[in-house]
């Protein structure tokens, strides 16, 4: 079974190679009578028998008409399905336990004609895989080609961090009469990475990268929000008026201005070693929980536009800031342990 599956996948890879967007054509479209198509042909056979036995030309005509409809709708099905143009959209960040929303744009540019009818989207299930790994569940999405909003999204539950093993996307359609099933298995670039689930914790920044001796540097603790009110100070000329604590003035305590916790702009390191795991967990769970905490800290620090580095033992990322840095840190966390 698995050998056949593998051969099939190989053949599919050759026939429909991975691409960012597809205009369906004879190479990528598979077409075969549906179950109803078979029933329909059976009906034609029955009508033929009845028509012959009753020597009824009208019944025979009906039978031949239905057969012709069957033939002609092959073309119609193909033509309709070949109108489909799919382009992969941008995926948002996804963390363990989240649903990955995999967006696809169906005929987004107005150049091509819209396909009609109901179109089913789902991840191609590889049966063996589902049996072993029950957690990888996916559900399909049915859209109406004449009434839908772009993009079409497929949901995939992500139970594990790291690269998502994205299976092919199956698209199928039965338009116009349901006699044929047109389908295709499209393969989109597999570059989605599931980040560890962030676990809220205090931010622990080591002042500098730790050397092997494990000498702990000065770590600085900091409360969560930095725009929070911290203390009062006597007013100095030039300070913004809206910082003045008018209530205090009204109480006759003179001009005092509110001071807010300002950003700590010092550079620090996040390190795997110094992240405390929750107690009572197995080795593997400990690691996951540590990574989760780091993930949370990376996200928080990036939000505050802080400069920080990441030390995961083997991989170290030099201190920096910005979206790109955040991305690379999260990727490093996600792929930690699998080389």
């Amino acid at each position: 079974m698995s050998i056949i599956q593998k051969q099939l996948n190989k053949w599919l890879d050759k026939r429909i190679p991975t691409a960012n967007q597809y205009q369906l054509n004879h190479k990528s479209i598979f077409i075969f009578p549906s179950k109803f198509g078979a029933l329909f042909i059976g009906l034609c056979g029955l009508l033929f028998l009845l028509g012959t036995n009753y020597q009824n030309n009208l019944m025979l005509l009906l039978c031949y008409f239905l057969v012709s409809i069957f033939l002609v709708s092959l073309l119609a099905s193909y033509i309709n399905f070949a109108k489909i143009h799919l382009q992969m959209g941008k995926t948002s960040e996804v963390f363990v336990g989240d649903n990955l929303h995999f967006p696809m744009w169906l005929n987004a540019d107005q150049k091509t004609l819209q396909p009609n009818g109901l179109i089913n989207f789902k991840f191609k299930s590889e049966k063996i895989k589902i049996n072993i790994d029950k957690s990888l569940s996916s559900n399909g999405n049915q859209i109406d080609g004449n009434n839908f909003t772009n993009p079409v999204t497929l949901n995939l539950l992500c139970p594990k961090r790291g690269k998502v093993n994205l299976s092919r996307v199956s698209v199928e359609c039965f338009y116009p009469l349901g006699l044929y099933r047109c389908w295709t298995h499209l393969s989109f670039p597999n570059n989605i990475i599931v980040f560890p689930k962030p676990i809220p914790c205090d931010i622990t920044l080591a002042e500098k990268s730790l050397n092997e001796s494990g000498e702990s540097g000065k770590t600085c603790q900091q409360s969560l929000g930095q725009d929070d009110f911290s203390h009062l100070k006597s007013y100095q000329l030039g300070e913004p008026l809206n910082h003045v604590a008018w209530k205090q003035l009204a109480k006759g305590r003179g001009m005092v201005s509110k001071q807010f916790a300002s950003e700590d702009s010092q550079i620090g390191w996040l390190s795997l070693k110094h992240t405390a795991a929750s107690v009572g967990l197995s080795q593997a769970e400990m690691l996951e929980s540590k990574l989760g905490k780091l993930c949370y800290q990376v996200a928080e620090l990036s939000r505050k536009n802080r400069v920080f580095g990441l030390d995961l033992g083997k991989t170290k990322i030099a201190p920096s800031s910005g979206m790109e840095h955040r991305q690379s840190c999260l990727t490093a966390l996600a792929t930690y342990g699998d080389d």
Binding site: F65, V67, S68, I69, L71, V72, S73
Partner: peptide, 14 residues
């Protein structure tokens, strides 16, 4: 449209 396309074929078959 489908029926009109099918018509000549069905007549031929008949």
């Amino acid at each position: 449209k489908l029926s009109l396309q099918a018509l000549p074929i069905s007549i031929l078959l008949f």
